[in-house]
Design a protein around this nucleic acid. Structure first.
Length: 590
DNA sequence: CCGTCCCCTG
DNA sequence: CAGGGGACGG
């Protein structure tokens, strides 16, 4: 198989993952960074002349890194697996009564079954990809080791080959409850991840090692960080290949087709349908699959122009190149510049589509179709205010500048922006890419995710917060967030349902949450304060249904039962939607 | 008994 | 939004 075919895969396949990669590339490719004469370790076999003094210092560290990487049974972040790695967590006191069964799995951010499944699906093709990847890895290691010392080469290669297995699970998607639901659009074209991520990661390692004077020589903490960076780069590479191979369109479609899922689940082939909205009451009876896909707006507009907007500066150099100057037999040889541009334009063209900021026909029509299809519908508590949504025609940047400022930078961003000066100082004190705690950005993201899922599982959260190093404390904190979100949500629902009753409404079908309604405003204010995210239609549908359920329960006097809300919770809990793939980016919604 | 969720409180 | 107590299902 020609590996290049992946890179050159037909345009429609390139979407969110490439968008992610693009954003990664942007983050990692600040002009200052790329302005340096950086080269990949494998891009040039070091000549003896290169091995001068400053390399000597570097070589020792790199060697240690590679050794550590190869010898470590779990290449993941060191110390990430210990159950008690959050001593400051207040919940630990309560934790003592719980069984310590989870920690062993903490390192694997992906359920084992999913990986197994992937292996089966991949077949020979995946194996080949893995093989090629190993080759690439070997080249990298060889060059590093050549620059350092040749003695541990054999050992290192063996160890590293095994180590990447578990790692690959981390970044991969497919954890969702309906992995087959995503259109091929969402699954393809991650090839850029490879180069982008590697460039990104490796360059960091390079810079770190180029500033040895700030590092205590041989400081274990620093070396751990460096090792982690290298490991991550490798894992990203593996992930990219796995993703491409596992989600191979023909194979997948065939398989799905035999299961009969294609027509309903393919968001690409079947645009969001409005029918499910016409009778909100019918939602509960519909299969979850159908409702959700129907509700999730899939932007189809090509808004490529937004890509050139100032907020996302993209220079040709910033586009991740699959393997820059690799050995001749590198399996992922860089495409020509033409191909690169092609990919880039595709990337850009899709950038808006999954963010829900773009103008979407289904959404524009949704707020109007309901009244027309059922004139009796009463947008509950409509106010004179126009919908709070931004003027969608302009396809604004995902977040306003004000919002960008308010969001704390994720660690990885901090590191890159900090450049050479900040990095050495920060190294010993913080883990840089896996967040130990949750920051306001995570909270913001969680709130947006609430529009799609009210009852996320811990596995789902892990899949959508790849930059968070989950432990029981973090997990329960995030679960608690959603519990709080629900609390507010249900309180609002009950409030407005009672208000409707007192206003004389008798038909629950008249209660529909529209974008210009008071209820929507309240919800939007809570979960989407900056109003920089376009609330998906599916959420409005769920909200309408919830409102109606509360209305009926109160109308029927069921609220005298102390647990009268429980049945409602049960219904709503089954209506979680699939979260857009873009949310899996650790940098999202930045 | 454990984990989860709800509810109340600050 | 976090803490903590209580109820509930497996």
């Amino acid at each position: 198989m020609d590996p290049n075919s992946i890179l050159l895969s037909p345009k429609p396949r390139i979407c969110s993952y490439l968008a992610e990669a693009c954003m990664e590339g942007e983050r990692s490719s600040s002009p200052t960074e790329l302005g340096r004469d950086f080269q990949f370790p494998w891009s040039q076999v070091p000549s003896p002349a290169d091995l001068d003094e400053h390399i000597q210092a570097k070589r020792a560290r790199v060697e240690t890194i590679v050794q550590g990487m190869c010898l470590s049974p779990n290449p993941l972040v060191p110390g990430s697996i210990q159950a008690g790695d959050t001593p400051h967590c207040p919940e630990m006191a309560r934790e003592r009564k719980r069984k310590q069964s989870l920690p062993t799995q903490q390192g694997l951010l992906m359920p084992a079954p999913a990986r197994d499944q992937g292996n089966r699906k991949g077949g020979p093709r995946m194996r080949e990809q893995l093989h090629l990847l190993k080759q690439q890895l070997r080249h990298l290691q060889e060059h590093i080791l050549q620059a350092a010392e040749p003695r541990d080469t054999a050992q290192g290669l063996g160890g590293c080959g095994k180590g990447k297995g578990p790692l690959s699970a981390k970044q991969r998607n497919g954890c969702g409850p309906f992995p087959w639901a995503s259109s091929s659009d969402h699954q393809q074209g991650s090839s850029k991840d490879l180069s982008g991520a590697e460039k990104h990661q490796v360059s960091e390692a390079e810079y770190q090692s180029e500033e040895p004077r700030f590092l205590p020589s041989g400081a274990p903490a620093s070396l751990e960080i460096l090792r982690k960076e290298l490991t991550r780069a490798v894992s990203w590479a593996v992930d990219s290949v796995l993703q491409k191979v596992l989600l191979d369109p023909p194979g997948r479609l065939t398989q799905l087709g035999s299961q009969g899922w294609v027509p309903e689940s393919g968001s690409e082939s079947s645009p969001p349908v409005a029918e499910t909205c016409e009778n909100p009451l019918a939602l509960a009876a519909l299969p979850r699959r159908v409702q959700l896909q129907a509700g999730v707006p899939i932007g189809n507009l090509s808004l490529a122009k937004t890509l050139d907007s100032p907020g996302y500066p993209i220079s040709p150099r910033m586009i991740p190149k699959p393997c820059q100057g690799p050995p001749a037999n590198c399996p992922l040889t860089a495409p020509s510049h033409i191909q690169e541009d092609q990919i880039r334009s595709q990337l850009l063209g899709h950038r808006c589509n999954n963010g829900h900021w773009s103008s979407s026909p289904s959404q524009d029509s949704s707020s109007q179709r309901q009244p027309s299809s059922e004139p009796a519908l009463q947008p509950w508590r409509t106010t004179k205010l126009q919908p709070l949504v931004l003027s969608q025609q302009q396809c604004p940047l995902p977040f306003t500048s004000a919002h960008l400022e308010s969001l704390p930078l994720l660690p990885s961003v901090k590191m890159e922006q900090g450049g050479l000066h900040a990095v050495p100082e920060a190294l010993p004190f913080s883990s840089l890419h896996t967040q130990e705690g949750l920051n306001p950005g995570h909270l913001k993201k969680a709130k947006l995710m609430f529009f799609f899922t009210r009852y996320p599982s811990s596995n789902l959260l892990k899949a959508y917060f790849p930059d968070v190093q989950f432990n029981r404390c973090i997990t329960s904190q995030m679960i608690k967030w959603f519990s709080n979100f629900r609390e507010f949500y249900y309180i609002q629902m009950e409030k407005f349902a009672r208000q409707a009753i007192s206003d004389g409404v008798t038909n629950p079908k008249m209660l529909v949450v529209l974008r210009n309604s008071e209820l929507f405003r309240a919800l939007n204010m809570h979960y989407n304060k900056g109003n920089d995210f376009e609330v998906p239609d599916c959420f409005l549908e769920i909200a309408s249904l919830t409102l109606q359920e509360f209305f009926r329960a109160v109308s029927a006097g069921r609220d005298s039962d102390p647990s009268w809300k429980k049945p409602i919770y049960k219904i709503i809990s089954k209506l979680d939607s699939d979260i857009p793939e873009i949310f899996k980016s650790s940098s999202y919604p930045q």
